[in-house]
Amino acid sequence: MNETRHPAGHVLQAYHDGELPANEDAAVAAHCEDCPTCRTELEELAAMTGLLAASPTPELPRTVWHRVRPGRAKESRLRPAFGLAACAAGIILGFLVGPIRIAAEESSAESSWSESVTVWSGQASTSLLAVYQTGQE
């Protein structure tokens, strides 16, 4: 490896990281002694590594242990079963209670309906009258 034949970029990176096999490491070291281009490249890699190291380490706000311990995992596995049971109970309850409520409401339904229609038609006619009067002006 001479000065004009530089090591490939990934080889220089591995050399910088101390990840080359001994023989290859020695060859790159020898090349870099005589090669200002590769020495500059290594200096830039070291500077970039320094910049990355200066980045703050994210801090975990609280331990996750209480949420992952096995008992908790079993509890969370049980939750879907409880949910399904609750849904089934709700449906059954709906079938049982529904007819009773309908029967109780049927007696008052007719009067409620007629009251609602009266209120609505009263409001509508008031609004129509206001529009008509505005148009006349």
Binding site: L51, L52, A53, A54, P56
Partner: peptide, 29 residues
């Protein structure tokens, strides 16, 4: 939250111009 966390190696900050440069690095990563 991430920005306010303590730096791992304070000595390595010597070449930085401060938080702005650290932000640039984080964003580039």
């Amino acid at each position: 939250d991430y920005d306010n966390a303590p730096a791992r190696d304070p000595d390595a900050l010597t070449d930085l111009t401060g938080k702005e440069e650290r932000d640039l690095v984080q964003e580039a990563v």
